[in-house]
């Protein structure tokens, strides 16, 4: 095999909560002809402290990962916000002229969010997968606005057998997660989740898909609390034909009531 050597940066949330997203990413990359490595010393990209205003610790973690991820043709991340952190924000952490700035820029140029990498770099236009369900897609903000991810997941989803994508009218509106925001301002965060889910519900989906586990844990957590049976999956799981496992929100707490017979 002589495809590009790709390091998978798994992200902390995927690592701990949902490794199936990482495994799906690896399967997709290998099917696209990449050689995939998983640098074991990877930890957290520093996004939480970056957004918290703690630049000292952010720089420490950035330097570790800049060194760790040198020497790969590409670094691929199954998340728009961690992808944006490495691709957009790492270079901003260092002054122009600082050798770390040059190294961060080099890493930035080689780093891609998973689905945009498959479509834009590997020129993939279809996948071999089946998901016979009506779905709607949440455009996570960092992926959408920092990395320009919008058409790529839709292009690949269009090739999934049986999948019907119905757009919600507020696809580009924030779901209210925002990392620490969801803990600091729980009521506002929940209101935004409810607005988002109301918009999603109008599309009557069986599943909500997205590319960022943070947003998906938030929406799945809210759906689970409401006892909804709408399932939440990461787009990589569907594209890798690996969404035959329980969804992120788990099994509904109360099994949905049997449908009432229609009167008319």
């Amino acid at each position: 095999m002589n495809g590009p050597l790709v390091a998978l940066f798994g992200t902390c949330l995927v690592d701990m909560f949902r490794p199936s997203i990482g495994l799906s990413a690896i399967a997709l990359l290998q099917r696209a002809g990449c050689r995939v490595a998983f640098p074991e010393a990877q930890t957290c990209c520093g996004q939480p402290m970056f957004n918290g205003g703690d630049l000292k610790h952010t720089r420490e973690l950035a330097k570790r990962h800049i060194d760790l991820l040198a020497g790969y043709d590409y670094v691929v991340i199954p998340s728009g916000s961690c992808g944006g952190m490495i691709r957009v924000h790492y270079p901003q952490l260092f002054e122009v002229g600082d050798p770390w700035h040059a190294k961060a820029l080099d890493l930035s140029r080689r780093s891609f969010e998973l689905v945009s990498f498959l479509v834009d770099v590997m020129k993939l236009d279809r996948v071999d997968a089946e998901f016979p369900h009506r779905v709607t897609y949440h455009d996570s903000c960092s992926g959408l606005r920092e990395l320009g991810i919008k058409a790529q997941p839709r292009k690949l989803l269009a090739s999934v057998r049986g999948l019907q994508l119905v757009e919600m009218d507020q696809a580009e509106t924030c779901c209210g997660f925002g990392g620490a925001f969801s803990l600091k301002f729980p009521d506002i965060s929940t209101r935004l989740a409810d607005d988002k889910l109301a918009s999603a519900r109008a599309a009557e989906p069986e599943a909500i898909l997205g590319g960022d586990l943070g947003c998906l844990l938030h929406l799945a957590g809210r759906l689970s609390r409401e006892g909804s049976d709408t399932r939440v999956y990461h787009v990589a799981e569907v594209l890798a034909d690996a969404a035959d496992i329980p969804p992120i929100n788990g099994l509904p707490r109360n099994p949905p009531e049997p449908a009432k017979p229609k009167l008319d």
Partner: peptide, 27 residues
């Protein structure tokens, strides 16, 4: 199913469950 409550993050659990990890970590 998902977690209903933890001794930390009361703000989160006021209105949301926390999805349960699948088990093994990716690493």
């Amino acid at each position: 199913g998902a977690l209903r409550k933890l001794p930390v993050w009361s703000g989160w659990f006021r209105s949301r469950d926390l999805p349960t990890p699948q088990g093994r970590t990716l690493r």
